[in-house]
Each structure stands twice: as C-alpha cells, then as structure tokens.
Design a protein around this nucleic acid. Structure first.
Length: 570
RNA sequence: GGGCUCGUGGCUUAGCCUGGAUAUAGCACUGGCCUUCUAAGUCAGUGGUCGGGGGUUCGAAUCCCCCCGAGCUCGCCA
C-alpha cells in the first residue's frame, strides 16, 4: 500500500471540484509535488487563465477559498498562481508507521502481477575474469530483478553462456596442450588461472600454423555437432563460468538459470530457425550465405543485411540468439535484456527476425554505456583493465582500514565482516547511482569514496538506527504517532511514505538509479533527525523509537533492493 | 555518410519521458560543530551562459528544428 495515494486522490478531487465551481469546465490538470518544500502537493492554475480571463493568482486564491480543510488536508492556500496543499502530517504519521510495522520487509512491495518475466543479464563470454566494464551488466540486471520482484512480478533471471565460437575453443585447446606446472598455476582463482592459458594458446595460434590448424579442426568438429568436442568445450566454459560466478557472488549477484548456447546447435533448434527464415520473402542469398534484407524495416546505414548463415551453411551467433529468444518467449510473457550499447542495432534486427517468425512481442532492453578508464577504453590486450575481483579486494582493504580507525574495540572477525559489507557495497552503489545510459569513467577515488552519496552513508544511517534500538528497552507501538510533529520528524515520515512509489517507478520504468537516490535522501533525512532530535533522553520516547525502527526497516529494504548488506554496527 | 545515445558549477550527478515556483545532491575548496543516542555525521559559505542558435508556449533544462562536441554502431565475429 502506498501511504501517499489517498492524499494525492484527495487533492485531485478537491481541486477538481473547486475549479469547476469557479467556472473551469471539466478541469484537466496534474497534481504536482513541488521541487522545493513549499507545499506537499500543488496544482498550477496558469492553464485556466485564458478561458477564465483572470490571472492565475486570482484563480488560485478563488479556488483556495472554495476548499475547506479535511481530515487529510490540513492547509490550502494560493501562492504565485499555484493552489498549494499541506497534508495532515499527524494522520500520515499514523498510517505510514502502522503500514511499516505490519508489512516489515515487505513494505513498499506491489501486488502480485500475472504472467512470467524472463530477465537475461550478465552473459559475459567465459574467456576470462569479469572486468568492471562488464560488471555494470550484472549490477544493473540484479538490481532491476530485485525491483521487479518487489513490484510483484514472477521473474526468472538467466545467464546465456556463450560456449560457441573460436575463443572458447582456443582456451580448450590450451587446457589440453599447455604445460600446467607453469607459474600460472600459482593463481588461486580459476578464472584468473585459465585466462593465462587462453592468452598463451592465443599467442601460439598466431605464431604457429600447426596450432592454428589444430584449433581450426576442433572448431569444425564442434560446428558439425561432434558430441565429444561439444562436451569438452562446455566443460571448459563451465570452469571459467564458475570463476565468474564466484566474483559475482561477492557482490550479491546470483542467477536462477543458465542457458548454454551450444544447446541450440545440439538439439537442432538453430537449424530449424534457419529453414524458417529462409522461407521469408525478405530472405536473400550471397555466395551461399543467407541473409534478411531489412532496409524496408527502417534499418539504416551502409549495411542493411542481417546474415544468419555462413557460406557453408553453418549458423552464426545471431541465428542462435534468434533461436534463444524464440525459446525465451515460449517460457515467458515478457522478456527483458540487459545489454551493452553496442548491441542496439543487433537487438533491433533480432526483433524484426522474431516478428518474421511470428512472435508478436519484442524483448524489452535496458542498454548501458561502457565503462572506460581515465586513460581511455578498457582493453584486455593492452592489459588496460580493472578486474572486478581487484576492485572488490581494494575496496574491502580500504574499508578495513577505515573500520579499524574507528572501531578498534571490535574483534578482527567483526571488523572484517563490516569491511566486506562496506567495500562490496561501495562497488555496487557507485555503478548504480548513475543512469545506465550515461557513460561512466572509472576512477578509483570515486569507487572507493566512503562519504556523501555512497554506500557507507546509507549503511551508516542504518547502523545508527540499530544502535539506538539496541540501547533502548522495548517500546509501545500502540500509540498515537501524531505527536511526531517536529519538522525533522515530519520530513522523515514523508520520506518513509514515498518508498512504495519509488519502487514502483524503479521497477515499472526500469529507472533503478532512483533507488540509490532515494536511499541517500532517506539516510540524509534520518541523519538530520538523529542530529537534532534526542530519542533515548528526549520526549515522546515510544513514538520516536517507533520512528527509528521504521526508518531502520525501510533503509534495510532499500539496501536490499540495491543488493547491499545492512550491517547493524559500523 | 546513415542511425542511436550522451552534453547541467572545477569534477560527478538529479530533474527531461509527463513544460510550471528561487535547477537536485555529492566530491573538492573555505570556516564552524564531538562532556549529550557511533563525526563514515552535521551547519554555513564560495561556485551554474542547463553545449550553441532558432522555434512552439502565458511559461522551456524539459517539447520541435538546425548546428557543435563526445561515445556506440553499420562483420559470412561473438
């Protein structure tokens, strides 16, 4: 339930009635929330000026006179051509806190929605450790999944494992032929160890034609559907994937399901798609390779052809992706993809191909810009990359120093636990606070910033709330919360009341950066309350403890949506 | 060349979809606040041609057009 909804509705009804009474026929308007804290809700009267031949100021004051305050609305006034409303904050305090107490960790969630939703994210190629550029994908994807779940959707998250193609074959060859007693074996984590073999094998392939021939042979066997080869390659991909998943688990990302690309070669589904696409009137051929001519579908550029077979008839990545999406739509009503911006054209082409195959729906995509380094693009070849594991390690280590500086009273284990929550949280928060379509330049000093708009700021507010509650005795929740009427208390309650509408917009409109924005606002609002309103030694102790407890719950819910842990002390 | 995206104080960023009151925060910088629930906090101050120009409108950061700059993209790669 959204505690603010009844107030919005009431403002709408009252304004509509008053405007009709002063001569506006069928008034059409939106109820606004002013950017400054002049009022809780406002209705601009400028659009009615022409019809009424009166100034907006006069219209607003005439309308204000027609409206009397109610149980929900405590003040109505005209100002600068606006009809302003202040809501009954005592009433809001009671409904909001009671709602939070009765729903707890479910506070803010929406009603169960019908239909299944399949969300694909991450899907990085299993050829090396995940770097921070690629990590934007799971961080966005996992957070969106959490928001959609909170909105009431039945959702399955899936990783599409790319175990087809030359890269994985090279790695597989390397694993079979390279000396494994080399220095690379010293590396503990499997993905970091394997990427060494990949680099070495790649180099050998470039330098030695015999190796290249062997790899080529393996590739051909794979594409012919040789069971033994497919099995071998998939095993390699699985090993690398395990390493990647281990990294993702550190930042609280886990997936429900995995789809292996080779599946569609093995089970003949990709071949079936080929024959169906060939039947399309848009299908053409060049040197034995088939493609769709997409010019009439609004695809622009030098090249409007969408190839789906090679000259030798074998399938392409795009063919398998079409097959995969056919498969997705057979399992779900809505399909959501988290993709790098370089996939935009491909997705547009894919949607057209799906329509030609009779699928009415299209995947809904969230595209994100790439993460670059101050020195430019990330490049594995030039060694210009920051691996997610390294970032996490550095963040944890810096967080540990900070914890040690402040909390020397804690045990080593406890300090470690807190440092992990803060360090890993900082990594996620830092990527979440910027809209996905904005380019992101990775800077260590930003990623490891523990002040201001950061993960620890929110976590710290939560820890402060926990700390007060720990020191307090149990308190009475069956009281009138309208005594919480101080400006800091009222502001905090209004912020708590906003949470359900924030979740709704974040999930329904894929605007997940609203969650960190809100979390920061709530934490800041609580910090002000904390600074100026004494709880344990002040008046209204039960009501204030209740407010602290509710803030703790909502901060914890917001942290959960972002995939951050909520330490009880810091 | 075509298409898509981005451009808001020194840096990062909200607001743009759905036009409306003095444009939101953070970092950095300057100066305050710990005998009172954890100072990862808080207060005050400095700092803005909302890339540029035109248009629509009572009103434009927001909508439309043109231009400039940056990124992505236009493979029988994945």
């Amino acid at each position: 339930m959204d505690p603010l909804q009844i107030y919005r509705d009431e403002v709408k009804t009252l304004s509509s009635k008053a405007l009709s009474e002063i001569g506006v026929s069928e008034p059409s308007f939106d109820v606004e929330v002013p950017s400054t804290e002049i009022a809780d809700f406002a209705v601009p009267c400028f659009p009615f000026a022409k019809a009424l031949k009166k100034s907006p100021m006069i219209i607003a004051s005439e309308a204000a006179e027609k409206i009397s305050t109610s149980e929900l609305i405590s003040k109505v006034w005209a100002e600068n051509g606006y009809l302003n409303f202040q809501i009954n904050s005592g009433k809001l305090a009671n409904t909001t806190l009671q709602e939070i107490f009765s729903t707890g960790s479910d506070y803010g969630k929406g009603e169960k929605k019908a239909g299944k939703l399949l969300l694909e994210h991450t899907s990085v190629n299993p050829t090396g450790p995940i770097h921070i550029g690629r990590a934007r994908n799971p961080i966005i994807g996992d957070t969106l999944a959490r928001c959609l779940r909170a909105c009431g959707y039945d959702i399955l998250t899936e990783y599409y494992v790319n175990d087809v193609g030359k890269q994985v074959i090279i790695l597989t060859w390397g694993l079979e032929h390279l000396d494994k007693s080399s220095e690379d074996d010293v590396v503990d984590k499997i993905d970091h160890r394997l990427v060494g073999y990949y680099r070495k094998a790649n180099k050998m392939m470039e330098e030695n034609p015999e190796v290249a021939a062997e790899i080529g042979q393996m590739l051909r066997k794979f594409e012919d559907g040789d069971k033994e080869t497919i099995e071998k390659v998939r095993k390699t991909a699985k090993m690398m994937l395990d390493g990647i998943l281990e990294s993702l688990a550190l930042i609280n990302v886990s997936l429900d399901s995995f789809m292996w690309e080779s599946t569609f070669i093995e089970n003949g589904a990709a071949a079936e798609v080929v024959s169906k696409l060939k039947a399309s009137e848009y299908c053409k051929e060049e040197n034995g390779a088939s493609y769709l001519e997409l010019e009439s579908f609004g695809i622009h550029g030098r090249e409007t052809r969408f190839f789906f077979t090679r000259g030798d008839g074998t399938t392409l990545y795009t063919t398998r992706d079409v097959t995969y999406h056919l498969n997705k739509f057979s399992r779900a009503d809505r399909v959501v993809n988290i993709l790098g911006e370089d996939q935009k054209l491909g997705q547009a082409q894919l949607a057209i191909a799906l329509h030609l195959l009779g699928v009415e729906r299209s995947p809904e995509c969230v595209f994100y810009s790439f993460v670059s380094l101050p020195e430019g693009k990330m490049s594995t070849r030039r060694g210009q990359v920051v691996n997610l594991d390294d970032l996490i390690e550095e963040a944890e280590s810096r967080a540990f120093d900070e914890v040690k500086k402040r909390r020397s009273d804690l045990s080593e284990d406890k300090m470690n636990e807190i440092a992990k929550a803060i360090g890993r949280g900082a990594v996620r928060y830092n990527m979440l606070r910027v809209q996905p379509e904005k380019p992101l330049v990775f800077r260590w000093e930003d990623a490891l910033n523990f002040e201001g708009n950061s993960a620890p700021f929110v976590q710290y507010a939560h820890a402060r709330a926990c700390s007060i509650l720990k020191k307090a005795d149990s308190f009475n929740k069956d009281i009138d919360f309208s005594e919480l009427s101080d400006i800091y208390e009222t502001k905090l309650i209004k912020t708590l009341a906003k949470f359900p509408s924030v979740i709704k917009e974040a999930g329904e409109k894929s605007r997940i950066h609203l969650i960190p924005l809100y979390a920061h606002e709530l934490a800041a609002s609580f910090n002000l309350f904390y600074t100026y309103v004494p709880v344990l030694k002040g008046d209204n102790k039960d009501a204030r403890l209740a407010l602290v407890d509710c803030t703790r719950v909502v901060l914890s819910n917001a942290l959960y949506l972002m995939g951050l842990n909520a330490p009880e002390e810091m």
